[in-house]
């Protein structure tokens, strides 16, 4: 794990007069949250391993504005969006990959009208395409035969209709995929979306992440697979809340793939 990772920036590419194949949009969680940073690094290892010519914006990246928009602050959202679009258009960005479904959704769906037109992929979609192009090899390894359930992120699944890419990757890891009762189109939210991540929930009789974690635990998984840094945090907290952290771990699919091949 000590092997160094290569993370070039767009500015460096620009200085060399080159264009990367894809921009890796790291996102706020991926940049600052301790748990999510591990996902970021796992994904970078996969990119390095597959020899993908990518770059990040680094300090030129700023929040997409998703939490602001969903909290009702359309001004702040559009300020953020236009700032980011200005930066990306200056670099003539064409294709973007991100490990955060919220960034994915916002850039893909809400930036075009504001002047930002890019091909945007969620990291599970991107990894799937690397796989089918033969650039990345995924083998069962450690996860072969393990009982795993997958939690659909709302902003990847319902919001954008992508249910298969993450499942295909899990299939490649030869896991025993067990679905929760509410999955795919009916998948239950982890409780983080719509800016809920950043505030206390309204009064009720349960936290949403606990409800979802209980459902996940019903499938008796060894691992709960996630595809979103916020879901990851919510479910990790849920597993802790249920005193199950010794038996069940929450992992991003990118981490699982990197782990399987000991990257």
């Amino acid at each position: 794990m000590s092997e160094t990772i290569k993370v070039p920036t767009m500015a460096e590419y620009m200085a060399e007069g080159k264009q990367p194949e894809v921009l890796f949009w790291v996102g706020c969680a991926g940049s600052f949250d301790d748990r999510a940073k591990k996902i970021t690094k796992a994904f970078v290892k996969l990119l390095n391993n597959a020899k993908v010519d990518f770059a990040v914006l680094g300090t030129e990246e700023s929040c997409t504005g998703d939490p602001a928009k969903r909290a009702g602050n359309e001004f702040l959202f559009q300020m953020q969006a236009m700032g980011n679009i200005e930066v990306m258009n200056a670099y003539e960005v064409k294709k973007i990959v991100t490990a955060c479904p919220h960034c994915f959704n916002t850039i893909k769906n809400e930036y075009p009208e504001l002047g930002g037109n890019y091909e945007v992929m969620h990291h599970t979609q991107f990894l799937k395409s690397l796989l089918s192009e033969g650039r990345l090899k995924v083998e069962g390894g450690k996860f072969k035969g393990k009982r795993i359930t997958f939690h659909d992120p709302c902003y990847l699944g319902r919001a954008n209709g992508e249910y298969e890419a993450p499942r295909e990757l899990l299939q490649k890891l030869e896991v025993e995929l067990v679905e929760m009762k509410r999955c795919k189109t009916r998948g239950l939210c982890c409780g983080a979306g719509g800016a809920q991540m950043f505030k206390e929930p309204e009064p009720g009789n349960k936290d949403i992440n606990i409800e979802r974690t209980e459902e996940a635990l019903e499938t008796k998984p060894e691992i709960i697979a996630a595809g979103c840094p916020f879901c990851n945090t919510m479910l990790t907290d849920g597993v802790k809340g249920k005193d199950k952290e010794a038996d069940v771990t929450v992992m991003d699919i990118a981490e699982m793939i990197a782990n399987a091949s000991d990257l």
Partner: peptide, 18 residues
């Protein structure tokens, strides 16, 4: 978000520290 470009109080200049 307005000041640091992230929902948490981190400096935008530290965005690549990971």
């Amino acid at each position: 978000i307005e000041n640091n470009g992230a929902p948490w109080p981190f400096n935008q200049m530290d965005r690549l520290n990971w």
